[in-house]
Structure formats: structure tokens, C-alpha cells
Design a protein around this nucleic acid. Sequence first.
DNA 1: AAATCGGGGAT
DNA 2: ATCCCAGATTT
Length: 351
Amino acid sequence: MNVEEMKYFSNELLKWYDQNARILPWREHPSAYRVWISEVMLQQTRVNAVKPYFERFMKECSTIQDLAHISEDKLLKLWEGLGYYNRAKNLKRAAQIIEEKFGGRLPSDRKCLQSLPGIGPYTAGAISSIAFGHKVPAVDGNVLRVMSRVLANKEDITCTAVKKEIEKIIYKILPEKRAGDFNQALMELGAVICVPNGAPKCTACPLSPICQGYQQGIEEKLPIKAKKKKRTIEKKTIFLLVYEEYILIRQRPNKGLLSNMWEFPNVEGYLSNQKCKEKMQQWKIDVKQILPLNSSKHIFTHKEWRMIGYLIIINKKPKELKGIWVTKQQILDKYSIPSAFQHYLKILFLQ
DNA sequence: AAATCGGGGAT
DNA sequence: ATCCCAGATTT
């Protein structure tokens, strides 16, 4: 791209953004804290999914100081259902570091931001440019797609080298004045016009006159991405253990998948009705009634849980069982249960 | 470089 | 079913 085209790129993109920017909660009085929280929530997560979480989070935890001292229960509850729960833990850790080492204020420098947990190359660039106006790129999936089309670049955008190459090009195009708007505009264009999976809306695109992919008629073949590997399948049997108005839940380990989230007791594999009875004996549970429940499945990025379940009404609270007995209300108020268990959680609430 | 980590909406 | 999302971190 020559200098003229880069000027055109920047000018037309900003002009388009001025007329088409969506009204989003984090764009209202965008403090560094609000930009930070929104950008972390938006990692691999769609705008519409984030909106309600962002507004609730800001009500319940409106400053860095609040965040540095929030309880884990409350933090996970605010994040419940959003996914990638390490994001929430990293937010709190970063808030504590910001209090200790940065005087309670977010740094503006990109490299400095990137030293904080949960803030990588993209998020550091986004905060630095959007909240502080620094001239730094913020290259996310949208930007990679838009640029691979504009440049008709047929390299694999999942490669680190290609990402760095795009960052360099963006840096050259970035305007001195409105770097934050430019970065947001490029992402917005990717989300609204230069969409993935099928036909981008090139006739409505301000960059089509300089888009090489469009002019070569290969825009729908771009970007090039390596194929993902298949998901592994895991079978599980879920137990809804109910004693009077209490239900047994347990906390997952603090590492790995859904770490520190709460779940219903479960075992690997499908247990028959008979094997389920035996398992209850093994756990020394005084069973009153066993009811088989409908199967359910939950798809993660890299694995798939196929589940069956049993509703088990019991006569006495067993002592030595791992977990805690809670009411439905306590689950709603305090304990975070991931969406994977939604099917069985719903059954519980029908009881 | 590849694997891990969630959940949901669009196609 | 597959893809992808305002990615980061660990292996």
C-alpha cells in the first residue's frame, strides 16, 4: 500500500466510523478502568454477550480498589456464564498489582500494560490507544480478517509472524490523533461489514476502492486459517443428590477446566441404574429413591461432554462426602455453576 | 507452534 | 455440524 492509499484508508475508515459507530456501554464515559474491563470481557466473546455482564460488573465493582478486594465468590458470580474464568481471576490479580506498583492507576504504556496478568498484545494496545490515545496497534481477529482481505494476503493468519507483520502495517496507517477510534473502527468494520463465514458486505464498505481482495474477487476465500483439530468426547454421569431442601455441590480444583467453579458430583462414564445404586452404596448414601434423568451435552472449544444423570433422593445427610449442602437460593446468590450443568440445574429448580 | 480455556450465535 | 468471536497463558 502506498502513502496515498494509507491516507485514504485512515480517512475513509474514520469517516465511516463517525457515522456508524454503535452505541455501546463501555463507550459511555470511557475511563481506563471501564476500557480495561470491557476489553477483557470481549476477549473471544461477542459484543452482545458482554453488554449485560459489563453493566452489572460496573455496578457491583466500579473501581480498581473494589476489584482488588472483591471476594472470589462474588467475582466468579459476576463472571458466571461468560466463560474463560481465568480472565476474572487475572483481573483481580492485576488490580492488586496496580494498587501496589502503579499507585492505583492503570499504566498507559503498552509494554507496561502487557506485564499485567490477563493483558496480552491485543488488550494492551486497545487500552493504550482507546483510553490514553497512544498511537499503538490493537490487532484482534476482526483486524486480521479485514487486513488479509484488503491486502489480499494469503498467509495463514494463525501464525505469529503474520500477526506481527499486520501489526507493523497497522502502525504505519495509524493516524497521529485518533488511534483509539481507528482501532475501534477497524474492529467495528470487521464485525459489521467485513464479516466472516460467507459474503462480506463489500458494497457498503468504505475500503472497497482500495481492497485488493475485493478487486481480485477473492474476498470470500480470505482469510486463510489452519484447520482446527477435532474435539474429544467425554462421557459423564451427573448426580443430583437431594436431601429435604438441600442439594449437594462441590468445588472444582483451582486449576484446569472450569477451575474453582461449583458442580454437581459426577463420575466419568455412563452408569447404569444398577451401577448408580452401587456407587451410592460405595459413598455410604442412604438412598430413598433414584430417578434417571434425560441426557444432555455441552460443547467446549476442545472437548464435548455427553452426560446422563440421576436424581437421588436420600434419607440422611452422609458425613464424609466431599462437597457442601446448599439450598437453591444459595446457588442463585453465591455459588457459580458453569453452563455445562445448566440442563441438570434446571431440573433441580423444577423439583 | 500447539494445546488449553467457555459459551453462544450465525451459517 | 462448523466457524468464530475486540485472546491470553501454558506447554
